[in-house]
Amino acid sequence: MKKNIAVVWGGYSSEWIVSEKSMVGICSFLDTKLYNVYSVKIDRQSWNVVADGAEYPVDKNDFSFSVEGEKVNIDFAYITIHGTPGEDGHLQGYFDMIGMPYSSCGLMASALTFNKYICNNYLKNFGITVAKSRHFTKDMSYDLGQVGEELGYPLFVKPNTGGSSFATTKVKSLNDFQKAMDDAFNEAEDVVAESFISGVEVTCGCYKIGNEKTLLPLTEVVTTNEFFDYNAKYAGQVEEITPARISEEMTLRIQQLTSRIYDLVGAKGIIRADFIISDNVPFLLEVNTTPGMTVTSFIPQQVKAAGLSMTDVLTDIIEEEYKKVK
C-alpha cells in the first residue's frame, strides 16, 4: 500500500515564496509509484491540503484531513518551509508530539541552526572558523560607529533568524548602517552584523542513511552582484558551478568540515553548509537544515553531479525516518 506523504510548505515569513518553489520541486522528485503526495500549505491563518484547486483543512490533532467525509491519514511529512515554523523547530516539536515522522532535523538541531549567531558561536568552540560578528535585539542600545570600527567596512547586516537573503545588506559606510539595521529588524526580532570576507563561496550538501553519511560534490557560487543576494539566488543573476573549481584537498577539507558540523549540531535528513574560502581558510557562513529543493537548487545539482537520483535520495530519507517512528 502506498504511503501518504505531505509536502509541507508556506510558513510565517517572507520566505514562503521560496518555500512554494521548493514544494513544487520535491513533489516532482517523489516516487508516485510508492507514495500518494499531498501539498500542505501552512500560514498564520490556516493549515490546508491543496489539491485539484480545492483546500481541505488539516486536523491538527493528528495531521489528517478529510475529503467528502473520508479521512486521509498522513504517514510522513516532508518539511520544506524556509523560516518559521518549519526551520526553527516549532513544527518539528509538533510532529514529535503526535508521533509523525518527518524529513528534517529535530527540534533542538533546527532551533540551534536557525539562530545564525548562536550556531556559529557554538561551532566556533569546536574549531570551526567563522566571521567576526555582533548580535543585536530591538531593545538594545548600541553605537554603530563603534561596531563599524570593530568589524570594518564593508560588513553585512542581516536578520539573525531568516534566510534567502531577505533584508540582507552589504554596508559600505556608517551612512548606510542604520537603514540596513532597520530593514533587518523589519524582518526579524534580532539582527547580526558580520565582517565581510572576500573569497570563493562554496556550498556542500550532506545526508545520512543509517550509519552511512553521503557528502555531496561542492557547488561554487559566482555572481557579479554585490553578494549572493535574493536576485542572485532566484532571478538567475549567478553562475553555479558543480563541482566547484577548487583543489581536491580543499574539497575534501570542506566535506570533512560539513560532516563534522552535521554531527555537532545533531542533524538528520539533508543539510547544506555554506562557506567562503579566504586565504586558503574555509569560513563557515551558515548551516541550512531545510535547503532549497527546486530543480535547479544546490542540492539537486550536487546529487546529479554525484551520479545519484533525487528520487532515490528522497525515498531513502523517507523510509529511514519512517522506520524509526513506526
Rank of each mutant, 00 (worst) to 15 (best):
M1W: 02
M1H: 13
K2C: 04
I5N: 08
S13P: 02
W16T: 04
M23Q: 12
V24H: 01
I26Y: 00
I26A: 00
C27F: 02
S28A: 06
F29K: 00
F29Q: 00
L34G: 10
N36K: 02
N36A: 05
Y38C: 02
S39G: 11
D43G: 10
R44W: 04
S46F: 01
S46A: 06
N48R: 04
G53P: 05
P57G: 01
D62L: 04
F65L: 04
F65N: 09
V67G: 10
V72F: 08
F76N: 06
G83M: 03
D88N: 15
D88L: 03
L91A: 13
Q92M: 08
Y94R: 09
M100P: 03
C105H: 00
L107C: 03
M108I: 03
M108S: 08
S110W: 01
N115A: 12
Y117T: 10
L123G: 02
N125G: 11
F126G: 08
T129Y: 06
T129A: 06
A131P: 14
S133F: 02
R134C: 08
S141G: 14
S141L: 13
L144P: 03
E150R: 01
E150D: 08
Y153E: 11
V157P: 05
K158A: 07
K158L: 10
T161C: 15
T161W: 00
T168Q: 06
T169A: 08
K170T: 05
S173A: 09
M181V: 15
A188H: 13
V191S: 10
E194L: 10
G199P: 11
E201N: 07
V202Y: 14
T203G: 13
T214Q: 14
L215D: 05
L215R: 12
P217L: 05
T219V: 13
V222R: 15
T224V: 03
N225S: 14
E226M: 10
E226W: 02
D229G: 09
K233A: 14
Y234C: 13
A235Y: 07
Q237R: 15
V238T: 15
I241H: 11
R245C: 10
R245F: 05
I246N: 11
I246P: 15
S247V: 01
S247E: 01
I254P: 07
I254A: 05
Q255N: 15
R260I: 04
D263A: 06
G266Q: 01
K268C: 07
I270A: 04
R272K: 09
A273C: 15
I276W: 09
P282H: 04
P282Y: 06
L284A: 11
L285T: 06
E286D: 15
E286N: 11
V287F: 03
T289R: 00
M293L: 04
V295D: 07
T296F: 06
F298I: 15
I299V: 13
Q301N: 14
K304N: 05
A305T: 12
M310W: 00
D312V: 01
L314G: 00
D316L: 03
I318P: 01
E321M: 02
E321L: 00
Y322D: 07
V325I: 12
